[in-house]
Design a protein around this nucleic acid. Sequence first.
DNA 1: TGCAAATGACTGACCAGTCAGTTATATAAG
DNA 2: CTTATATAACTGACTGGTCAGTCATTTGCA
Lengths: 189, 189
Amino acid sequence: MDAALAEFTERGFEAARMEDIAKRAGISKGGVYLYFPSKTALLEALIEAKVTPLARLAQTIAANGANDPMAALRMIAAAAAHRLGDGKVFAVPRLVISVSGRFPEIAEYYRVHVVELARGALESLIQAAMAKGALRRVDPQAAARAFIGPILFEALWTHVLRGKSVLSDPEKLVQHHFDVWLNGVEHRA
Amino acid sequence: MDAALAEFTERGFEAARMEDIAKRAGISKGGVYLYFPSKTALLEALIEAKVTPLARLAQTIAANGANDPMAALRMIAAAAAHRLGDGKVFAVPRLVISVSGRFPEIAEYYRVHVVELARGALESLIQAAMAKGALRRVDPQAAARAFIGPILFEALWTHVLRGKSVLSDPEKLVQHHFDVWLNGVEHRA
DNA sequence: TGCAAATGACTGACCAGTCAGTTATATAAG
DNA sequence: CTTATATAACTGACTGGTCAGTCATTTGCA
């Protein structure tokens, strides 16, 4: 599956050759078909395998973070920056974006099992923080977007466009990001 | 080119058939080859054609907005939300993400001619606003990321994952977005 | 009548998926 | 421990179908 993910990311799903995937995994083409009935099945299995641990993670964080939501949010930002800084981790969402036109069911699967879960966890933490008076009352969806959007943008910039990146120093990214997210950019008199 | 963009987005670059593109454009397969020497050339021409007006736009905004940078920023956010709300407009960056692995030169072209320009324009506006005292002194890159990231996230959510969207009401999105961007989320005693 | 624009049947290359055959491993018998 | 047998894991040449790109022919227009 790691071999498949690498080939799919490098060449695109269509252009990736099963023989290359097999070679990369150290087996023969026929061998791949012992475990996956088709190229599409391999893609689906791959997404599913990478997604499952994420789903668990999101739920755990939301449950455990209710006591100190602000600390949990900071941890999430740091974890997200570190993980998305790794091209191999980001390869999965990148692949989902690539194939979403041709395989809407994969897009839906990813939305339901990753993004909706993560958004839900994030929003519930934000609302918990509001309830405790740590955050002002803003639209939770807007707050969640503002939380995750900039990190995602930096990941795209880095891995897709190969731009010079702040992600190489995730601590700094998170620090700046949290400063803006918490305090905004407006000058106060 | 519109036909090609649509087919590339729906099926992926590899899986898109030249005959389908031709049919969609109302000509024959051979006809396409009168104007574009190859499928790859069509892709490159398409990206280039869609990108050029954007580059001009970014420069114009940066130049004209220096007087009232805050108003310019608000306009940019509104324009970005409206445009990215349109699936046809978002199809271009989406396609770039899809093919970036196989065609790094397209990714680079897009980075240089769109994203770096836009980032540059955005950062110069933000710095102008800081100089005028309208914004506090934060890292301009972080401010620009916080500005554009959430809108990009919402576009991905809407068009790629087909999630229920706030982009259908871009005014509201921009209003919430600007509120958080300017004031942050932290509660003030 | 001449010329450019456009067509679509055709070809050569490519590759997902198959399967007859090979190798490796486990089990049983001598 | 060695040899024989059964079974599972794996291989890679092959096939059928697909499609980018070509070009002899047709269409439309001045």
